[in-house]
Structure formats: structure tokens, C-alpha cells
């Protein structure tokens, strides 16, 4: 892209923010199956009553980002923030149709799904450049957080200077460890929740008010 177009885009982004032409867009990022869609659905349902997309144990069920606009989160002190929630496909460095065949899909369907998932990840990564204003980074707290994808992605988000909240999800499970996630990312706030059961969502909403407001 030529430098002037780039500068112009940047400038209009600041002006838009200044005149509040659009809400902050909060992207929910993280590896597949962390519970991004479950959490997005809960946030949308808690504040608007709708839902955003289907949840599945098959990885890459969300192959295109879904957006819900104009969600207003508030607390009893009268603080409020209006955001757009963007549920993104799970980020990985490798996508193979074989993975879907293991879930009983036909080859054609599996290859198609792999292609779509690849496009979806490429799209979600691209948005980090200038279309996302803040990030909720989701992790399954029963798994080792110190993976190459997690470190790389959090690093990319940091290099964009985006505000980030790390969510340690699935704390309803017995082997969940939010402290392992805290240790892996000491530089960011970590909120333990169960998106499925709705545990500790209040703390997450408070953090969102503070961070994305």
C-alpha cells in the first residue's frame, strides 16, 4: 500500500474515534476450542438477549468471523461502554483436512472446510492491522498456555498496542489452572471464567469497562 493511503487511513481512523463514528470493535481471539463462540454468545445474550453463532467441539466450527454491533455493557456506578463483539475463527499455524476426516467428514467436505478455515484465519489476522480496537484473548485453562501460537499472537497484539484482556476459560473443569495462564502472561490482566456456566462473568465485564471504555 502506498504511504499516503496508509497515512490517510490512519488519520481517518483517529478522526472516527474522535467523533465516535463507530464503536470500539473488540475481537475475541485465541486457539480453536478455547470457547470463543460460547463466550461471545454469552456476552451478546447477557446484554442484548440474542446469540451470535453455533458452538461445536469440532475445531474450526467458526470459519468466518461474526460480528454483533452495539452491545452496551454497564455497571451500577453508571459506567458504560458500547462495543462491537467480533468472534473470530481459532488461530493456528497449520490447518489440515485430515483433522476433519477424523470427525467423520467426507474428504470433499473436509478439504472445503480446511480451505474456509484458512481463509478465516487469514482474515482475522489481517483485521488486527487496523480494524480491531481491543482484544479478548481466550485460553482453555486446562491446557498449557505456553504454545508458539499463543506467544506469537499475544506478541502481535502487543506490537499493535491494542488493549488486551486474557480470559482463562473453562474454570468449571477440575484440572483448570488459571494461575498457569497468569504465569505465562504476567504483563496482562487474566480473568478466570466459565463461559459455559457463566461463572465470574461480572469480573470480566468490570475489566471490559475499565479496559475498553
Amino acid at each position: 500500500m502506498n504511504f499516503f493511503i496508509r497515512t490517510k487511513k490512519r488519520l481517518s481512523r483517529y478522526l472516527n474515534a474522535f467523533f465516535k463514528k463507530r464503536q470500539s470493535r473488540i475481537g475475541i481471539y485465541g486457539p480453536p476450542n478455547a470457547g470463543k463462540t460460547t463466550l461471545s454468545n454469552r456476552i451478546v445474550r447477557d446484554w442484548t438477549g440474542d446469540a451470535l453463532g453455533p458452538v461445536s467441539e469440532i475445531p474450526h466450527e467458526t470459519r468466518r468471523a461474526r460480528r454483533k454491533e452495539g452491545i452496551t455493557i454497564s455497571n451500577q456506578n453508571g459506567n458504560r461502554v458500547t462495543i462491537d463483539i467480533v468472534d473470530t475463527p481459532g488461530v493456528t499455524t497449520k490447518i489440515d483436512y485430515q483433522e476433519f476426516i477424523e470427525y467423520g467428514m467426507e474428504k470433499d467436505e473436509a478439504v472445503k472446510r480446511a480451505r474456509e478455515a484458512t481463509e478465516g484465519v487469514a482474515e482475522a489476522m489481517h483485521w488486527l492491522r487496523e480494524d480491531i480496537d481491543g482484544v479478548i484473548y481466550m485460553l482453555d485453562s486446562t491446557l498449557d498456555p505456553f504454545t508458539q501460537v499463543n506467544i506469537m499472537l499475544v506478541g502481535i497484539i502487543e506490537s499493535r498496542n491494542l488493549p488486551v484482556i486474557i480470559v482463562a476459560n473453562k474454570i468449571d473443569l477440575p484440572d483448570a489452572s488459571a494461575s498457569a495462564i497468569r504465569k505465562a502472561f504476567p504483563q496482562h490482566p487474566v480473568i478466570p471464567v466459565s463461559g459455559l456456566e457463566g461463572n465470574n462473568m461480572e469480573e470480566l465485564y468490570e475489566k471490559m469497562l475499565e479496559h475498553f471504555g
Binding site: 497449520k94 484465519v121 488486527l128 506469537m152 499472537l153 502481535i156
Partner: peptide, 24 residues
């Protein structure tokens, strides 16, 4: 593209590139 249906993604490049991949 490693073979049809099998892909490796370079996240840092995707996040920095001016291009958006829209369709495989």
C-alpha cells in the same frame, strides 16, 4: 499450500500484509 487441503499459515506475515486473502 503443503498439499490440497493442508496449509501452513505465517501469522506474523498475515498480520502485517496489506493483502487480505479472501478465497482459496
Amino acid at each position: 499450500v503443503i498439499n490440497p487441503g493442508s496449509y501452513e499459515l505465517n501469522l506474523e506475515k498475515l498480520a502485517e500484509s496489506d493483502e487480505l486473502v479472501i478465497r482459496m
